[in-house]
């Protein structure tokens, strides 16, 4: 199953629509709660980053029999130094974003922790693409 979402930039309020939709679909498929949490938290973190650090973008989620693959693509400012950005606590979040409880600098760390495979490609000035893969039945792998 393929799901496509357009995410608007600066829309702190509606952010999370895509990840909660994917979460609902997985719940209907009776996937284990811990696995659903891994996917939806990783995806929500990436979705929020698109909104607060870039100006929105597109998300394509592919739900396969044994894994979920989510591609989040934005044309925002890009990430200069991905290694640095991955460090827990590193954040360039705006004051407004911080007032809303973002900006702990833990988003990428959470993605890394919850995704089975995490790929980030970014070019300063061009944009960022985050790919998250989570296995649905890890014990059988």
């Amino acid at each position: 199953m393929n799901l496509h979402f357009d995410v608007e930039g600066g829309e702190f309020i509606s952010a999370g629509v895509a990840s909660s939709k994917v979460k609902k679909v997985l719940k209907q498929l009776a996937i284990q709660p811990e696995i659903i949490r891994k996917i939806s938290v990783a995806m929500y973190e990436a979705e929020i980053n698109m909104v607060i650090h870039a100006h929105g973008g597109v998300i394509d989620a592919e739900i396969m029999p044994d894994h979920v693959h989510v591609v989040l693509k934005d044309e925002g400012p890009g990430i200069e130094n991905i290694e640095l950005a991955m460090k827990a606590g590193y954040s360039t979040a705006s004051r407004l974003a911080r007032e809303m409880g973002f900006g702990a600098g833990m988003g990428l760390a959470n993605m890394k922790r919850y995704a089975d495979i995490l790929q980030i490609e970014s070019e300063p000035g061009k944009g960022t693409t985050v790919e998250i893969t989570v296995k649905l039945y890890p014990e059988q792998a």
Binding site: F12, I13, A15, G16, S19, S20, K23, P33, R37, S40, V41, Y44, E45, I48, M100, G101, F102, G103, A104, G105, M106, G107, A109, N110, R113
Partner: peptide, 30 residues
């Protein structure tokens, strides 16, 4: 801080926070 909550809070916890905006629902659901 929402990312900290998503990283650490357990299922079915009582989450104590000063945040009262809509994003706490997204996090709470997740």
């Amino acid at each position: 801080l929402l990312s900290v909550v998503m990283g650490k809070a357990k299922e079915q916890c009582a989450w104590i926070t000063i945040q009262g905006h809509i994003n706490i629902i997204a996090v709470g659901t997740l």
